[in-house]
């Protein structure tokens, strides 16, 4: 069993607004081993980005509130209890994050080189000259042509894919143990997306970094993730290995999500199974299973009580009443078949 790098325990984050309390993340627990890639999959508003930001301790309190009992252990230390000094070592040094919109994440008034140096010099005592040399090397490493001249340019002079490479260079400047990639390829074209995914994979293999990949794109996940966590309306509904999730999905939501995406490799015209309705309002989430309003197999108990988490072995778990022994006497209206 490999060593645990990050353990998120019972994380709950709420935002307080005019309309009331939005429960973005509702008691999420997962862990990341050293050097592995964990994918967090879900639709917009399911709380995946809030989870990512919590791990970096980037949640602004208030308006947000991190609930009592939440723990984020990084190498055994609770990130949520870090003081300012420890936090500044942690952020950018031990853990780094890259965002979806690289243009918004980079400073438009600083050259790319200075932004990389900023991170290097913050975490180690090196001269400006040395740092600049490192910055050039980093840009070369992420595949930016002519890094010596590009290092002096501003973010607006780079294309979308190149900006994302710069973000990756900044993230890898201090050889972090954990990289959080929050929708790193969503804004990019598919050929550029393939380049960025390859780059992250190569760097990870080379440096042994653990990666948390946050995305809504199941295709990207299949290519890169070791383990997958599926989130829906602030909760983890299913988790398992890459193969478990894609070939033997147990939760109706995971299954529906897979059937809703057209696949390039199938010859016949598919009928896309749409998931009717919309995700629930997190201002007052449903009492029972969060998916009960849209689930084809919804039973009475689903709407009233929270589903238990069933274990299918090897870390494959799904929170659904369909597998529970305590479920009502009548049988589930369907049987799961392996795909």
């Amino acid at each position: 069993m490999s060593e645990k790098l990050l353990e998120v325990k019972n994380l709950a984050v709420s935002y307080h607004g005019y309309a009331g309390e939005v429960q973005s993340v509702r008691r999420v627990t997962f862990d990341v081993n050293k050097g592995e890639t964990l994918a967090v999959v879900g639709e917009s508003g399911c709380g995946k980005s809030v989870t990512a930001k919590s791990i970096m301790h980037l949640i602004k309190v208030p308006p947000a509130e991190i609930k009592e009992g939440s723990e984020i252990l990084f190498n055994g230390e609770d990130v949520l209890k870090f003081d300012k000094k420890r936090l500044s070592q942690y952020r950018g040094g031990e853990a780094a994050i890259i965002f979806q919109d690289a243009l918004a994440a980079l400073n438009p008034t600083m050259t790319v080189g200075n932004q990389i140096i900023e991170n290097i010099r913050h975490h180690s005592k090196v001269s400006k000259k040395e740092a600049m040399a490192q910055a050039v090397e980093l840009l070369r490493m992420v595949g930016i042509p002519q890094p010596e001249s590009r290092v002096k340019q501003y973010p607006h002079e780079f294309s979308g894919g190149m900006r994302q490479r710069v973000m990756i260079a900044i993230a890898f400047a201090c050889n972090p143990q954990l990289l959080i990639a929050d929708e790193p390829t969503t804004a990019l074209d598919v050929t550029i997306q393939a380049q960025i995914v390859d780059l992250i994979k190569d760097l990870q293999r080379e440096k042994g970094t653990a990666v948390i990949l946050i995305t809504h794109d199941l295709g990207v996940v299949a290519n890169i993730a070791h383990r997958i966590v599926v989130m829906y309306s602030g909760k983890i509904v299913e988790r398992g290995s890459n193969l478990d999730i894609f070939h033997h999905p147990k939760h109706p939501y995971t299954n529906a999500l897979l059937e809703a995406v057209p696949r390039l490799d199938l010859v016949n015209k598919q009928v896309l199974t749409s998931i009717e309705g919309t995700p629930p309002d997190l201002l007052n989430p449903p009492k029972g299973c969060p998916f009960c309003t849209r689930c084809k197999y919804c039973m009475e108990i689903c709407c009233t009580e929270e589903p238990p988490t069933e274990d299918f072995g090897d870390g494959h778990e799904a929170s659904c009443w369909l597998y529970s022994l305590e479920k009502p006497a009548e049988d589930a209206p369907f049987t799961w078949e392996d795909k």
């Binding site: 598919v190 393939a194 990207v220 299949a222 290519n223 890459n242 894609f246 070939h247 696949r263």
Partner: peptide, 23 residues
């Protein structure tokens, strides 16, 4: 372009990896 599109299936993806055309 077709080769760059990921397919949501880890087994097929692993097979495609070798023949993928990288632009």
């Amino acid at each position: 372009l077709l080769s760059a599109i990921p397919i949501p299936d880890p087994v097929i993806e692993a097979e495609r990896e070798a023949t993928r055309i990288r632009l």
